[in-house]
Design a protein around this nucleic acid. Structure first.
Length: 316
DNA sequence: TGCCAGGCGGGGT
DNA sequence: ACCCCGCATGGC
């Protein structure tokens, strides 16, 4: 249990074209977001966390009381992407057959960024599994390892640290991660070194290749983690699902899908890839292709199916 | 029941 | 550069 010494309170000035409710909702769990209040972990260990509501009122908590409030708030601003100008991305999306609707109705969306460690675990859990299965694994991992933050009288689950997982690797089996377990353990062992090597790198290709040096982490996982953690969008995480969607939508051969995607989305290729999963509710490939045929490229409002936008309602 | 998924690496050509 | 297979698990 982590207790906190320092509290910094304030009110976020919300930028134009920024939808905080959307940012907090997408790809979140019910134990972190309830529709109004959101718990955010701002570091690897959970020593710095925040509560924020959809109006922008926040409290940042730190275990170390010698830290400065302004630095803590900077972390919050970064995680929420408050300084990120995506007007170019949404301009490209406007006339796109996949993301046209998304750009009109959801242009307030930003990535809610996480640690590189957790970004990689997210990617690994998506490998060769459906959206629902992958996020089920992640839910199990957070719940089973049981790291917690105590704020006021409430407890919030924290992401297990790499050490937590190395201390009790068998919980990964219980979390139903299957053969992905070995890859998660390899990441846990080297993540600190990887982070240090990446720190001095700027080029996305270099960063990707450093991350890919971990066995079991390929282009898809490395690139997804680059989108989710350091907000680097140049390289798209393209899996079988998106590859097929690209080739049917734009009429390009599957083996040219990535090249075409980058030509189309420039330095926002990674962001666009993630946005498509939101726009199509991450439905399995068959259904996604059917929806494209019917021109249904906006997220659905119905709450029956679990989707990136409403999974917080289902996974509490 | 027996497939087959938002990957990946190893082993073949 | 390709192609092909197996891999835990869950859903259909």
């Amino acid at each position: 249990m982590i207790m906190y010494e320092l509290k910094c309170k304030g009110y976020i000035e919300l930028p134009k074209n920024y939808d905080l409710n959307l940012v907090l909702s997408v790809y979140n769990f019910g134990f972190w977001f309830d529709g109004t209040n959101c718990f955010l972990q701002l570091d690897n260990e959970g020593n710095i966390v925040a509560l924020i509501d959809t109006s922008g009122r926040y409290v940042v908590y730190s275990k170390d009381k010698s830290l400065k409030c302004s630095d803590l708030v900077d972390k919050l601003v970064y995680v929420l992407g408050l300084n990120e100008d995506l007007s170019k991305f949404y301009a490209l999306a406007e006339k796109d057959p996949l993301l046209g609707c998304f750009s009109r109705k959801y242009r307030g969306w930003r990535v809610r960024s996480t640690s590189l460690w957790w970004g990689l675990v997210i990617g690994i859990c998506q490998q060769n599994a459906s959206f629902r299965q992958g996020w089920g694994m992640l839910y199990n991992i957070v719940k089973l390892y049981g790291r917690k933050a105590v704020l006021n009288v409430r407890e919030y689950p924290l992401i297990p640290t790499p050490q937590d997982i190395l201390d009790n690797p068998d919980l990964l089996i219980k979390a139903r991660t299957g053969y992905r377990r070995e890859t998660i353990l390899r990441v846990a062992r080297v993540i600190e070194k990887i982070e240090n090597r990446i720190r001095k790198e700027k080029e996305p290709e270099r960063i990707e290749s450093i991350i890919k040096s971990i066995k079991g982490v390929g282009a898809y996982t490395a690139r997804l983690a680059m989108v989710l953690s350091p907000r680097k969008y140049e390289l798209p995480p393209i899996d079988r699902w998106l590859k097929k969607i690209i080739s049917t939508t734009y009429g390009v051969d599957e083996k040219n899908a990535e090249k075409y995607w980058i030509y189309r989305w420039k330095n926002y290729s990674g962001l666009a890839a993630l946005a498509v999963t939101i726009a199509l509710d991450a439905v399995p490939l068959r259904k996604a292709l059917e929806r494209l045929r019917n021109g249904e490229t906006c997220p659905l409002k119905e709450t029956q199916i679990i989707s990136p936008i409403n999974m917080w309602k289902h996974m509490k």
